[in-house]
C-alpha cells in the first residue's frame, strides 16, 4: 500500500514536472522570439525611412530641418545597432522615434500638405511603423512577464533551475524626452505665404 502511494506520488510529480519544465522552456523561446521581433521592426523602420523621405522631399521643401533630423537620427540608430550595446541602441532608437514624431506632428499642422497623396501615404506608413515597433515591445513585455510569473509561482518555480530559467528584463522607455508628450510650436512652422 505504501509503495503504491509512493508510486502514485512520484508519477504525479513527474507528470506535473514535465508540464512545468516544458512550459518554462517554451516561454523562454517565446521571449527570445519576441525580442527578435523588435529587431525586425526596427530594421524595417531603418529601411523605410530613405524611401519615404525622398517621396515627400519635394512637397516638404520648407521642412528641411525636420527631414534632416530624421535622416541623421536614422543613421545614428543604424550605427548604434551595428556596434553599440542594448542601452545605446535603445537610446538611438528613441531619438529616431522622437524625430519621426515631430515629422508627423508637422505634417498634421498643414491640411493642404496632408491632402496630397504622397504625404498621406507617408503619414500612414509612419503611423504603421511606429505602431508595429510599439506592439513588438508590448508583445515582448507581455511574454517576458508571463515567463517571469511562471518562474516565481508554484509549481513551475520548482523547475526553474532545471530549465535554466532566469528572469527576463522588460523593455522600458529610457529617454525622458520620449516619455513626454510631443509639443508642436505652430508659430515657428507656418509655411511662407
Amino acid at each position: 500500500m505504501v509503495t503504491l502511494i509512493l508510486i502514485v506520488v512520484i508519477a504525479l510529480f513527474a507528470f506535473f514536472g514535465i508540464g512545468a519544465y516544458n512550459r518554462l522552456v517554451s516561454l523562454k523561446n517565446r521571449v527570445a522570439n519576441a525580442w527578435k521581433q523588435i529587431d525586425v521592426q526596427l530594421k524595417r523602420r531603418h529601411d523605410l525611412i530613405p524611401n519615404l523621405v525622398s517621396t515627400v522631399k519635394g512637397a516638404m521643401n520648407f521642412e528641411r530641418e525636420t527631414l534632416e533630423a530624421v535622416i541623421s537620427a536614422r543613421n545614428q540608430a543604424i550605427s548604434a545597432s551595428a556596434t553599440g550595446g542594448v542601452a545605446e541602441t535603445a537610446a538611438a532608437e528613441s531619438h529616431l522615434t522622437g524625430a519621426l514624431g515631430r515629422l508627423l506632428a508637422v505634417v498634421e499642422a498643414y491640411p493642404d500638405l496632408k491632402a496630397t497623396g504622397n504625404v498621406a501615404q507617408l503619414q500612414e506608413e509612419l503611423t504603421a511603423t511606429e505602431n508595429k515597433i510599439g506592439f513588438a515591445r508590448q508583445l515582448y513585455n507581455d511574454t517576458a512577464t508571463q515567463y517571469n510569473i511562471a518562474q516565481q509561482t508554484f509549481p513551475t518555480m520548482l523547475f526553474a533551475g532545471m530549465a535554466a530559467a532566469t528572469p527576463a528584463a522588460l523593455w522600458e522607455i529610457t529617454d525622458e524626452a520620449e516619455r513626454a508628450l510631443p509639443k508642436v510650436d505652430l508659430s515657428l512652422t507656418l509655411p511662407p505665404k
Binding site: 517565446r30 522570439n33 519576441a34 521581433q37 521592426q41 501615404q121 500612414e124 506608413e125 503611423t127 504603421a128 505602431n131 508595429k132 506592439f135 513588438a136 508590448q138 508583445l139 511574454t143
Partner: peptide, 15 residues
Amino acid sequence: RQLLNVVDEMCVASG
C-alpha cells in the same frame, strides 16, 4: 493599404 498595415500591426502584437 491602411487595412494591410493594420493587419500587419495586429500580427506583430499577437505574434
